[in-house]
Design a protein around this nucleic acid. Structure first.
Lengths: 266, 266
DNA sequence: GTCAACCATTTGTGTGACGAATGAACTCGT
DNA sequence: ACGAGTTCATTCGTCACACAAATGGTTGAC
């Protein structure tokens, strides 16, 4: 377990907006963090349209009430995230979406906090469907007994909290995080943490459906058994069934809840 | 096709180090880009050990011969990549690896350019194994006829350039890039571009083995046929066979070539 | 009409100053 | 001797200003 990715998955789930900024390397409350988030959101939201230039640095200084150094440092960060590109005389222009570093934690959060489209949620789920089965396969082949014990522990907690959706979803995420962690692939682990954070940010998909949870519990159990039994192909296939099922559930929810309507059926 | 991810995959493959910096939003030759890369590499290489503080800003100004503004802007970029964390009085300390944004293009490149460990290459391949089959599945289910035509085109080019390993590997990558693009998942596409760039940076795995290429050609053909025939499950399974095969090839190469020895058997 | 020179604007870079945070050293009381 | 509070020095945080470099647009010569 480490301080920056794995345990966060659980903690960031329940209250995304209220959490100050525990896992970022800069303080959101300082001038720098505030500027980065403000400008970043404006770009992602389309308030600064693609192809257009941001206000000039001096204009931003006036509008945002901070020094030019702070503005420049923030813009440089956005540049590093692929959102904008600065050129002398032309200005700082917003790059096309294909340039954005969508796998950057901030970009992902900004994108999925702000009323993500169905397509965007579909893409997000697609990534989960892609890597979760492989993570289960790796976990099933792993020799890390402690890791497998952690998976088992989280499964049991899921069983115990089946009637409390908020608790349950936390252990659900922890179950998947434990599997990815046990798999031992750093890149997949980061990817998993990113996806979890994005799903948590996209509050559309926060469903608290006890009946559905009870149904998926069996699927989780099957995955667990396959991992414990070292049946790698079976673990992968069962996990695939599980996450595609979740993907279908999300699709159904989105269809029945046209748009902009968060927290339905609480 | 877009300007920032897909076509790059091919172009960046053959000469990574010689390419100026066409796909970055900042110029590598300017003061800022130079500082970001210099400091970033020092962190990734361990020249600034984890947990230690970087030299103070004024010290860096002296050592690197640039103004404090430029140093600060560069450090802010590294902070945004999760590499370091600045605190007053204590200094700018290097964060543990688990905090690094490994899916950041720069971080990935720095990490895999610099003599990556077998474990790191294994992780990289693991990600490919995870998402390529799903990408093939999506492509097989896609209605985008132009995309499928592009896949077909690249396959034919692979056939035609089978005796020229350099050309062949370019079309091989383009084949996979076309599949991911046709799949239509933006996140997977970025992930694919990242992995391609990282593999290109890791020159250990640049094998130019015509016999092996001829063998994989059949696998590619099978994937292509499944996609054209809209057999989604078969496309995924065949792609899985293909990329796991590549993964095994890389493992074998690494075993037979203990370490630090690039470009063997040219 | 074409092309070159010029100009205005915007980011790029360097420098100095002061503020805020904080770890370390120091003082003082017990 | 030990602990608590204070002071101090160091380092990043922020702002302001000045000038350089790049470049799109304008102007003017022919």
């Amino acid at each position: 377990m480490n301080a920056c990715v794995a345990p966060r998955a659980v903690a960031t789930l329940l209250d995304v907006t209220t959490t100050p900024a525990p896992d970022r390397n800069y303080r959101r409350d300082g001038v720098h963090g505030r500027l980065v988030h403000e400008l970043g959101r404006r770009v992602i939201d389309g308030r600064y349209p693609i192809g257009d230039a941001l206000p000039t640095e001096t204009a931003l200084v006036d509008q945002l009430g901070s020094g030019r150094s702070a503005i420049r440092e923030a813009v440089k960060v956005l540049t590093a995230k692929g959102l904008v590109k600065a050129r002398t005389k032309v200005g700082t222009v917003v790059q096309p979406e294909s340039c954005w570093h969508l796998l950057d934690p901030d970009v992902l959060a900004w994108r999925y906090q702000n009323d993500p489209s169905d397509k965007q949620l579909e893409d997000l789920g697609g990534v989960r469907v892609a890597f979760e089965p492989e993570a289960a396969r790796l976990a099933a082949g792993a020799t890390d007994r402690g890791g497998i014990a952690a998976i088992q522990r989280e499964y049991l907690l899921m069983e115990q909290t089946i009637d409390d959706p908020d608790e349950f979803i936390g252990h659900d995420l922890a179950f998947h995080a434990a599997i990815v962690h046990t798999g031992g692939n750093q890149l997949l682990e980061q990817l998993s943490a990113l996806m979890s954070a994005a799903f948590a940010a996209a509050r559309q998909v926060h469903t608290r459906n006890v009946r559905r949870n009870k149904r998926t519990l069996a699927g989780h159990r099957a995955v667990l058994d396959a991992i414990v039994g070292r049946r790698v192909d079976e673990a992968a296939e069962l996990m695939r069934v599980l996450v595609t099922g979740a993907q279908h559930d999300i699709r159904r929810d989105l269809r029945s809840r046209p748009r902009g309507d968060a927290h339905a059926r609480a």
